[in-house]
Design a protein around this nucleic acid. Structure first.
Length: 260
DNA sequence: AACATGTACAACCGCGGGATA
DNA sequence: ATATCCCGCGGTTGTACATGT
């Protein structure tokens, strides 16, 4: 069938944004709120495609963005979240108020990857690298591990995380009786801190030696909600949702000696 | 000072998926 | 059930700036 182009490329600017374009975009969003990115450029008088406007706003112009260097705490949190979620930058960004997925992705590729390699850790698998040879983790040679130590698609993990952790979206800044466009507030677009008090007891460091697919039957899967600090059924509906004792929306095997 | 190389980050591109007609 | 629209995501590219030779 084919997809229609997101914009009329012949009449759109590309490349770096000018100050004037920024001002137009900011002014328009202040007046009308986010959303309807496809029609926004025309309405705002911008010769840009909607995607470009959205990206510019999300990654650079949003007032709640935290500019500046990442702190060591943020570094470690990103590493932990990446070990859990893999390259799900938007989900990781959701746990770092004021940071964008693009920013975190860039930071990962330019700083953290190197930092982990210097520590002798494979940035993709979060497993120790071989001290010599070709630098490939031993476990990689034996059996290719999953890209990260979770056993379900990261999207499912995200569903589990945000089903319990994501606060209801804040009211839109402008009259909600607008043109009928959906709010575009996604995982990274709101100005509210997502879950500032999340207890992220995520697994990190030496991950389970065998991939979850090979989880021994004695290793009981554990709902991620526990690891996020929601315990004893508090706000957690995984058990209720599941049809069986092991069908959590997100789980990971217990490590040796670990209990909940 | 001039050039080469490396680094950081903004922006683009293509695709997947939810919503809806 | 299917087609289409639109948003959002992740990978990649382009470019400005920093550093080394």
């Amino acid at each position: 069938m084919g997809r229609s182009p997101c914009c009329e490329k012949a009449h759109t600017n590309k490349g770096a944004w000018t100050k004037e374009e920024d001002q137009r975009l900011i002014a328009y969003i202040r007046a009308h709120g986010e959303g309807c990115w496809r029609s926004l450029p025309k309405a705002a008088g911008l010769l840009r495609c909607g995607k470009s406007c959205r990206l510019r706003w999300m990654n650079y112009l949003r007032p709640d963005l935290k500019r500046g260097n990442f702190t060591d705490d943020e570094d470690e949190l990103i590493i932990r979240l990446h070990s859990l979620l893999g390259n799900k930058w938007s989900l990781i960004a959701g746990q770092l108020p004021g940071r964008t997925d693009n920013e975190i992705k860039n930071y990962w590729n330019t700083h953290i990857k190197r930092k982990l390699l210097a520590r002798g850790i494979d940035p993709q698998t979060h497993r120790p690298l071989l001290s010599g040879g070709d630098g490939i983790a031993a476990s990689n040679k034996a059996a290719p591990p999953p890209p990260h130590p979770i056993s379900v698609p990261a999207k499912a993990a995200a569903a589990a995380i945000f089903a319990v952790a994501k606060p209801p979206p804040p009211p839109r800044p402008v009259d909600s009786s607008d043109d009928g466009c959906r709010s575009s507030s996604g995982t990274t677009s709101t100005g509210e801190p997502r879950c500032p008090d999340l207890n992220l007891e995520l697994s990190v460091g030496p991950t389970p030696s065998s991939p979850p697919a090979e989880t021994p039957t004695s290793a009981r899967p554990v709902c991620l909600c526990y690891h996020l600090g929601f315990r004893g059924g508090e706000a957690c509906s995984c058990q209720a949702d599941s049809k069986g004792p092991h069908e959590f929306r997100y789980f990971r095997p217990l490590e040796q000696g670990q209990y909940i």
